[in-house]
C-alpha cells in the first residue's frame, strides 16, 4: 500500500491551507505580475517579505519549500551564467576573454534574475503544498466559468482534470505492482543504454495502459449508474465562499502590487 498525494500537497491545517483556492490562484498570478513589475531590489524585498509571511502561516517546513528549487536549479545556473558573461555594461569589465566579459551590471542583473526565479518557484510550490488537487480543480473551474459564455466546455475540462488527478495515486500503485512483478521475472530497468532501457519499459507500459483503459471504462459505467448526464441539471455541493481569511489575503495582494508599483516609480531601476 503506497501513500501518494499528487504533486506535493502537505497535509496540515493552517491559515494558508484554508484560503479559498480561487484566491490562491489569483494570488499567485498577482505575485508573478508583481515580480515582473519590480524593477529593483526593494520591490523584490517586498515580494520576499510576502513569501516569508506565506511560508510562516502555512506550517510547511522551510526545507520542503527550498526543495522546490532543485527542479529549477539548472535553469537558475543557466540564466546566471548567461547574464554574468554576456551582459554588456558601461564601465570597464572585471574580466574579459574572447566573447566573454564580466561587468558590474552583469553581476547585479544576474543576481536580480536569480532572485526573481527563486521567489517565483517558491511561491508556486506554496500553492501546491497548501491546496489539494481537488480544490485546485474546483478553483480553476470556478475561475474559468465566464468562459462558458463563449461555449468553452468548462465543466468537461474540470471533470477531466479531476479524474486525471484521482487516477494518479491508483496508477502509481499499479505501476509499482507491475514493476515488481516484472522485476521478479528478471526484468532489468536500471542497466543498459537508453534504447535498451526504453525497450525494457514495454512490459510495464502495456499492462499499465490496459489497466488505465479498463479503469476508464468501469468508471464511466459507475458514473452513468449514478445518474451522470453531463452538467445539465447538475448542482454543486461545494460552493467556494469567501471568509475573513480571504479578505486579509486580498488586502495583502493589493498591498504588494501597489507597493511594488510605487517602488518602481520612485526608486528607479536596478542598474
Amino acid at each position: 500500500m503506497k501513500e501518494v498525494t499528487f504533486g506535493q500537497y502537505y497535509p496540515v491545517e493552517s491559515f494558508v491551507h484554508k484560503v479559498d483556492p480561487r484566491l490562491k490562484i489569483v494570488f499567485l498570478i498577482a505575485y508573478i505580475t508583481a515580480i515582473f513589475l519590480a524593477k529593483n531590489f526593494y520591490g523584490l524585498a517586498a515580494c520576499a517579505f510576502v513569501l516569508v509571511l506565506t511560508v510562516a502561516f502555512s506550517r510547511v517546513p522551510i526545507l520542503k519549500v527550498l526543495r522546490a528549487l532543485r527542479g529549477i536549479a539548472v535553469l537558475i545556473l543557466f540564466t546566471s551564467v548567461l547574464n554574468v558573461f554576456f551582459y554588456r555594461g558601461e564601465g570597464d569589465p572585471y574580466f574579459e576573454w574572447t566573447v566573454f566579459a564580466v561587468y558590474r551590471e552583469g553581476l547585479i542583473f544576474s543576481a536580480f534574475l536569480v532572485c526573481r526565479l527563486v521567489l517565483l518557484a517558491m511561491l508556486s510550490s506554496m500553492l501546491t503544498y497548501t491546496t489539494t488537487p481537488v480544490a485546485l480543480c474546483d478553483g480553476i473551474e470556478s475561475l474559468l466559468t465566464p468562459l462558458k459564455w463563449i461555449r468553452f466546455p468548462v465543466h468537461a475540462v474540470s471533470l477531466i482534470m479531476s479524474q486525471a488527478l484521482s487516477m494518479i495515486p491508483i496508477l502509481s500503485d499499479e505501476t509499482d505492482r507491475i514493476k515488481s512483478a516484472q522485476m521478479a521475472r528478471g526484468a532489468d530497468f536500471e542497466s543498459g543504454n537508453p534504447v535498451k532501457r526504453v525497450k525494457a519499459m514495454i512490459p510495464i507500459l502495456i499492462p499499465l495502459l490496459i489497466s488505465a483503459f479498463r479503469r476508464a471504462e468501469e468508471l464511466g459505467e459507475a458514473m452513468e449508474a449514478r445518474c451522470y448526464m453531463g452538467d445539465k441539471k447538475r448542482t454543486k455541493y461545494k460552493k467556494l465562499t469567501f471568509t475573513w481569511r480571504d479578505l486579509i489575503v486580498f488586502l495583502l495582494i493589493a498591498g504588494l502590487v501597489t507597493g511594488v508599483v510605487l517602488l518602481r516609480v520612485y526608486c528607479g531601476g536596478v542598474i
Partner: peptide, 19 residues
C-alpha cells in the same frame, strides 16, 4: 478502485446527488 469519482469521501458520495 474503479468507482471513485472524487478524491475525497464527501465529494465522492455527493456526486450522484449533484447529478
Amino acid at each position: 478502485d474503479n468507482q471513485t469519482v472524487s478524491m475525497l469521501v464527501e465529494d465522492d458520495v455527493a456526486f450522484g446527488a449533484e447529478n
